[in-house]
Amino acid sequence: MTVFLADLNYWVTIFLMIGGLYIIAAHGNMIKKLVGLSIFQTSVYLLFLSPGKVLGGTAPIIAPGFEVYSNPLPHVLILTAIVVGVATIALGLALVVRIHEAYGTIEDDEVQEMEAD
């Protein structure tokens, strides 16, 4: 049971990653692809954050009375990654809007068919 609980975090992370990957690979709608991309990203956040947690520790803000703190380094990396993530998603959405204006659709297949014609 403890083994199961210990690995649960990683398994949830893996499931999220695979879910995001599946959305990106299988769905043709570009907005949905971007949502899948962001789910993939969040799974990476979890992948970084969950090893940094120390059981019985507290948030890495130094205060008297606490001895054990979680690892601050992944927090720093992920903090910037989130904001960068939303900026890149915005860039992708801008591309989607332009594609919609140029082709009148946001489906992958339809754009490719129009290109082929």
């Binding site: 948030a59 803000i61 903090l79 910037t80 989130i82 904001v83």
Partner: peptide, 8 residues
């Protein structure tokens, strides 16, 4: 610098 937070 004292609590959670920052520029982002």
């Amino acid at each position: 610098e004292y609590g959670p937070g920052g520029g982002f």
